[in-house]
Nucleic acid binder design. Structure first.
Lengths: 229, 229
DNA sequence: CTCTGTGAACATATTCACAGCC
DNA sequence: GGCTGTGAATATGTTCACAGAG
């Protein structure tokens, strides 16, 4: 939740892309990859927007924050645009992440197929439970929490994933920050406090379903009222 | 992404709570539960906001959409507010969900501890792979896709979770909708199209990390420039 | 003529600041 | 006096609609 702000474009190189746009750039990248696989080498904002599931105007506005990478009257060169977005979001390099908490969810994340093609490399697994330390999960050996500092330093890891129970989340976040991690993806159902300069994003599996349940309830509750339609 | 809209409060009973507020209500519920466990029976908007990780004004505005459940000069009764929010988001009942795709992620979701206490009950597991059908995961037997219609109908399930590879996602979504599912949580890295009236929410594990990577890149790239501070 | 890039209009969300009740 | 509930102000995000490049 502690996300850096810089939405105004100042001088030359510092861009300042809106958060909402940043969150969609990976979606566009995926859509462009799909088009490449289909052998499409050029596309309009309408086609790309369809593949990404957004409104074409929104897509064009989003891309306009990066620069003018299209051709008026023609559209976008798929490969060129793909490279430009990849460069913008740092996908020209791989990012190493360390996962803390190798329970069911942590194990699933460790072997998640979708990461490698998106510039994410699971570089290390850490767990507090001595029973799990030494275990091998999809080619990686689970390390002890005591080795966290060394792992983060040695492999120059800046992104950590918390996949522990909620009760351990804050403690783990503190350890990650102390080890030098500056970005955290938190799957634990708990709020974690971090110092300024550290970004946290939260994925809460229950909350997503609770939101759907809310809408379900409304559907069920409202339909009887709208008997005319 | 196809979320029903009704932000305007019309006559009496139809409320119309903003999406952003709906997404935070489960967070408040969790914070209230935490306070109850600590033996706190009353709290101010400031205390609750701290526990939920939001601004107190935002919290008060969010709660104002539900009604006036606080007492001026005093604060909120934890138990009473907890009940009111629970009722609003449909947490006074349990919601059955069916998970499709029992790979690593699907298995992890099946045994996720956080659901049961949040009104979510994993009622059925389904997989297209005959090898997996019949397997038992945390007390549930994996069923065949052929049985999907019967399962959804018999257990009156309205929420489905897609945990398949991206390539299967649209096919699975179609099957879920055909079976009568009206809300889908999609973990597959793919866009799914659904008819009007069906809600889809998407959780994309890669994208969350890619967004963090973007911010990491900025931190790394910008610091050398801001040498004065 | 086609399709991008973008100012302007609109919609939603957040935060401020204070009136009103306890 | 203290804290909620909320109008008003601000910030952010989305969509429209069209000027302008090719």
């Amino acid at each position: 939740m502690t996300i850096l702000r810089s939405p105004r474009l100042a001088d030359g190189s510092a861009r300042g892309i809106p958060d909402a746009t940043v969150a969609r750039l990976p979606v566009y990248l995926r859509a462009l990859n799909a088009l490449t696989e289909q052998g499409v080498s050029s596309c309009s904002s309408i086609e790309l927007a369809e593949n990404a599931g957004v409104n074409p105007a929104k897509l064009r506005k989003d891309l306009s924050y990066l620069g003018s990478y299209g051709t008026r009257g023609v559209g976008y060169d798929v490969e060129y645009l793909r490279y430009q977005i990849a460069r913008e979001i740092g996908q020209t390099q791989d990012w190493d992440v360390v996962i803390v908490g190798i329970g069911n969810l942590g194990s699933a994340l460790s072997s998640y197929q979708g990461f490698s093609t998106r510039g994410i490399r699971v570089a290390a697994l850490v767990d507090a439970d001595p029973q799990r330390v030494g275990t091998e999960i999809s080619g990686l050996t689970v390390s002890s929490m005591d080795d966290l500092d060394a792992i983060v330093a040695d492999r120059a890891i800046s992104i950590g994933v918390i996949a522990t129970p909620g009760t351990a989340a804050q403690e783990v976040a503190d350890r990650l920050v102390a080890a030098g991690i500056t970005s955290i993806l938190n799957f634990a159902p708990a709020l974690v406090q971090v110092p300024d300069g550290v970004d946290v994003r939260k994925v809460d599996l229950s909350i997503e379903l609770q939101i759907l349940a809310y809408h379900e309830q409304r559907k069920a509750g409202i339909e009887p009222k709208v008997s005319g339609i």
